[in-house]
Design a protein around this nucleic acid. Structure first.
Length: 466
RNA sequence: AACUCUAUGGUGUAACGGUAGCACAACAGAUUUUGGUUCUGUUUGUCAAGGUUCGAAUCCUUGUAGAGUUGCCA
């Protein structure tokens, strides 16, 4: 691989010569039948085709005619060059397929050098051969074309003999993969563009923060088959989590902040604690996280009236603040609507760094937090599946009807750990206990933006649903 | 409609004609300074009916279901 992109148009001259070679060998002819005559003459799967009245033109006459085609002596559709194979062949593609047609149009790469253009079938195998491709992979719809692919390789002096292998296209649950439908989503502004993080496009997936390694592993596990199957998107998400778990740095971020005041912590004191960047990778090292009297914790981590399996904070209960201190809630302050607006808590100086106290007290949960004075405000875009149904077209319904209205929830008042201020665009990190998040290109000096790549597995949320 | 291809747990994917295995999902438990990770265990399968064979997921026939094709598109 050279890395340069190569186009079939780079081979137009060679293909033209090969077409002449076919003519000289009596294996191609110029057909002056009309479009409809050719179609009718082809017959169908239970009726063999009829030979064209121009089929037996001499190689000399065909050569002269074909050169005239190139010179622009004919109008569009006036004649075509056909391979002379077998009008009774059971495969319709082998019934003298058209290999060159006249098109008086400019080409985006070759300009106006050509007014005749080769058909896909006359280009595919030859291009592969010129590039010394051994296994030419394509999708199932080209299966019927393989005999033709091979026929050209057999009758042309190609430098190599590639092999075409077809496999089923990749389908995923909760999304659509067809270009036509994706285009519609873009044009109707159902998504923000081709690189919307919900789109199953390369740019979308990249912006979502899916690592290339995860995609490779996913492809490895789904394999290549001829069975048209639909892969569970959970398998992809699993590959993403698996990859990110090993590589993503951990940070603390509060998406839905609830203010905490630690009444027994000195007003102006700031401590810095060591936090492990990645427990799965010691070489990722540690970082400093500032701690102070006023913090934000996740609103979901406090309940006024908790169910019995709720291990997090409630009035009178104690939890561990990740890598800092144990925290006990003394009082919840509510507004006139009964909404909790602030927590009054105390900390235990003996539990510095989150260590267990000497009296043997136990705590069942560790929660994340952010020092209010040091927090970086951010916008966090919570992406979910684009469609709310496994098969958006089940029962023949319009796929747009299955769009998931909640596929994007934007949180504008998130509070991030101060270290996240300088996250590189495109870097995917873990917000501890929440999920993996990717710094988005919309980030500016003033506003930090993160996209949720995928959430962490949440067995608590799952248990709640039951 | 015809022709071509395909069919293995809930979703996928393996198994020279010789013990149906693996991943994900689900469920249960252990560990845990992330209700994450990790570990252990459990549940569920060869589309149907015939045939060949000592022996069939595998080979043959028929049926059923799904996909693809029937452009001077790619």
């Amino acid at each position: 691989m050279t890395g340069e992109s190569i186009c079939a148009s780079d081979y137009f001259e060679r293909l033209f010569e090969w077409a002449l070679a076919l003519i000289d060998a009596g294996k191609a002819y110029v057909d002056h039948q009309t479009f409809d005559e050719i179609r009718e003459g082809r017959g169908n799967t239970h009726e063999s085709g009829k030979e064209s009245p121009y089929r037996d033109r001499s190689p000399e006459e065909n050569r002269a005619l074909f050169l005239q085609m190139r010179e622009g002596k004919f109008a569009n559709g006036e004649c075509v060059l056909r391979a002379k194979i077998d009008m009774a062949h059971s495969n319709l593609n082998m019934r003298d397929p058209v290999i060159y047609r006249i098109m008086h149009t400019e080409h985006h790469r070759t300009g106006d050098t050509w007014c005749i253009y080769p058909m896909y079938d006359f280009t595919h195998g030859q291009s592969d051969a010129l590039e010394y491709i051994t296994h030419s992979l394509c999708t199932l719809e080209f299966e019927h074309h393989r005999p033709l692919y091979e026929w050209f390789l057999e009758h042309l002096p190609t430098p190599s003999k590639p092999r075409q292998i077809e496999f089923a296209r990749l389908n995923l649950t909760y999304t659509v993969m067809s270009k036509r439908k994706l285009l519609q989503l873009v044009e109707e502004n159902r998504v923000s563009g081709w690189d919307d993080p919900r789109m199953p496009t390369i740019s979308g997936i990249r912006r979502r923060g899916y690592p290339a390694e995860a995609l490779r592993n996913f492809c490895k596990t789904i394999g290549i088959t001829k069975y048209s199957s639909t892969h569970d998107i959970a398998l992809l998400e699993n590959a993403v989590r698996e990859s990110l778990n090993k590589t993503a740095r951990r940070y603390m971020a509060v998406l839905n902040p609830l203010k905490v005041v630690i009444t027994n912590y000195p007003e102006d004191q700031v401590e810095e604690f060591d936090a492990i960047n990645n427990p799965e990778d010691e070489s990722a090292g540690k970082r400093k996280v500032p701690f102070s009297r006023e913090l934000y914790i996740e609103r979901d981590d406090f309940m006024l009236d908790p169910p019995k399996k709720f291990f997090r904070l409630s009035v009178g209960k104690e939890v561990r603040l990740r890598c800092s201190y144990w925290l006990k809630c003394e009082e919840a302050i509510t507004d006139e609507n009964g909404e909790v607006i602030e927590l009054r808590c105390t900390y235990d100086p003996e539990t510095r760094g989150g260590a267990n106290p000497s009296d043997g007290r136990k705590v069942k949960a560790t929660i994340h937090w952010v020092s209010a004075a040091h927090a970086v405000p951010a916008e966090v875009r919570l992406y979910d599946r684009l469609f709310s149904e496994e098969d958006p077209e089940a029962g023949g319904q319009d796929f747009l009807d299955a769009l998931n209205a909640g596929s994007l929830t934007s949180v504008t008042n998130a509070q991030l750990e101060t270290n996240l201020r300088d996250a590189a665009i495109g870097e995917t990190v873990q917000f501890e206990r929440l999920g993996y998040f990717c710094a988005d290109q919309d980030t500016t000096e003033e506003a930090v933006v993160f996209n949720r790549t995928v959430s962490l597995r949440d067995s608590w949320a799952r248990a709640q649903k039951k």
